[in-house]
């Protein structure tokens, strides 16, 4: 059963390797805005040691972790997958003993491994380089911390995958999804703590943040590895149930969406 998805995974892996130049350019493009952000923070800290309980080295550490998590967990397949559905090109998956969602997942994972192999060394190099200019708080990590953090990353990946998938599935109802894609990007960066540590945001935003599970992708793992919070059973359950909820929503969306498929063209 798993074998067919491994086959897809393998093809995607091969295919991604063909576009290594493009991948390298994306790595640079992704890292650049963060550098700009760090310099802004440096300017904000001019003459101050602590803002909202954060020191500059802590802030830089925060953003490096954001960058790292972003690399590992993010999925960007909404655009071409939506087009695929709109143009009626998923007949292939719907007429074969093969799940479309699993196909998206296998392909995304295949591409992910390649992009990580290329981007993580680049990211580490960038961090070392940056730490020469701006002070970064060093992290002390135990084996348990690292393991739990890795667990958060995997869960974070699946959460981001679900959200990207919702955008894709909404194509069955709406004509375009470019707007939704931006909406996803804004809400994920804002309510997950990826844009700014949540302590810096207004109270109304913090309330939304508390309700939404997006914090489990960025803010919670970062706070955990920084040693600010502990992995309590309560937290573990919260994360787990948020994840289950997201998977459930995805399943319901999919089962409703296929009724609306029109298999355009042909």
């Amino acid at each position: 059963m798993l074998k067919k998805y491994l086959a897809i995974y393998r093809y995607m892996f091969i295919r991604s390797l063909q576009f290594r130049t493009e991948l390298a350019i994306y790595v640079v493009l992704d890292v650049l805005p963060f550098f700009v952000l760090l310099f802004m923070w440096q300017a904000a800290f001019a003459g101050k040691d602590v803002i909202n309980g954060f020191t500059l080295p802590q802030i830089t550490q925060y953003y490096f972790l954001v960058m790292f998590i972003e690399r590992v967990t993010s999925s960007y397949f909404e655009n071409w997958r939506s087009t695929e559905i709109r143009e009626g090109k998923i007949d292939y998956f719907l007429t074969r003993p093969f799940s479309y969602i699993n196909e998206i997942l296998s392909k995304d994972l295949g591409g992910k491994v390649v992009s990580l192999l290329i981007s993580i060394p680049g990211l580490l190099a960038a961090m070392v380089l940056m730490s020469l200019i701006i002070p970064v708080e060093p992290l002390t990590i135990t084996a348990i911390h690292a393991t739990v953090f890795a667990g958060f990353l995997i869960l974070g990946y699946f959460m981001q995958f679900c959200i990207a998938l919702w955008i894709v599935l909404l194509t069955f109802w709406f004509e375009g999804s470019a707007g939704l894609e931006h909406f996803k990007w804004i809400s994920v960066t804002l309510f997950s703590g990826a844009m700014i540590p949540i302590e810096f945001t207004p109270e109304w935003l913090q309330k939304i943040y508390a309700v939404l599970p997006l914090k489990y992708i960025f803010a919670v793992p970062i706070n955990y590895i920084q040693g600010n919070i502990l992995l309590t059973p309560r937290l573990g359950l919260e994360v787990f149930f948020s994840f289950l909820l997201m998977v459930g929503i995805t399943k319901i969306l999919w089962s409703k969406a296929v009724y609306r498929y029109s298999s355009a063209g042909g």
């Binding site: 074998k3 067919k4 491994l6 086959a7 093809y11 074969r96 003993p97 093969f98």
Partner: peptide, 19 residues
């Protein structure tokens, strides 16, 4: 068929899909 790959690759993929 997979546009960028030879047809034989798609045949092997279908072999996996249909077991």
């Amino acid at each position: 068929l997979w546009w960028d790959l030879p047809a034989i690759e798609t045949f092997h993929l279908n072999k996996a899909i249909y077991e």
